[in-house]
């Protein structure tokens, strides 16, 4: 459950680069640890986000977790569907469960993102 066309963070977000934009969500592992999600809080379109800093949060019945932005940039789109169907993140974390689309400053993701192999190693630990 670690798609090999994505980049990852140590805090269990994934990033798909599409030209100078990054699509961001949380990984299969993250959603499985949290359990059935009940609420998602996301930034607004136009907000500036910074790599490694909080940009939102997700909640299940027994847990809550912050979402950290993997990149620097400006939010250009938010998955509004998640407000009503947070379960999409459980069911399809890399597809329907995407969270935000960020126009990345400088067009490139910052250093320090993990490759699929590196992320798999992290989960092994």
């Amino acid at each position: 459950m670690i798609p090999d066309d994505l980049l990852y963070t140590k805090t269990h977000e994934w990033v798909r680069m599409e030209d100078d934009e990054a699509v961001v969500g949380i990984t299969h592992f993250a959603q499985s640890q949290l359990g059935d999600l009940t609420f998602v809080e996301l930034p607004k379109v136009g907000d500036t986000v910074t790599a490694g800093e909080e940009m939102g949060s997700v909640e299940s019945v027994k847990a809550a977790s912050e979402i950290y932005s993997p990149v620097d940039g400006e939010v250009v789109a938010v998955n509004e569907e998640l407000a009503d169907t947070p379960e999409a993140i459980n069911e399809d974390p890399y597809g329907e469960g995407w969270m935000v689309r960020v126009r990345v400053t400088g067009g490139q993701p910052s250093d320090g993102l993990l490759t699929p192999e590196e992320y798999a190693e992290l989960l092994e630990e």
């Binding site: 609420f39 027994k62 847990a63 809550a64 912050e66």
Partner: peptide
């Protein structure tokens, strides 16, 4: 009891 993820026993300092 619902919406407990806001509360101290889960979210602690936050």
């Amino acid at each position: 009891l619902t919406l407990q993820a806001r509360e101290q026993h889960i979210r602690r300092a936050k």
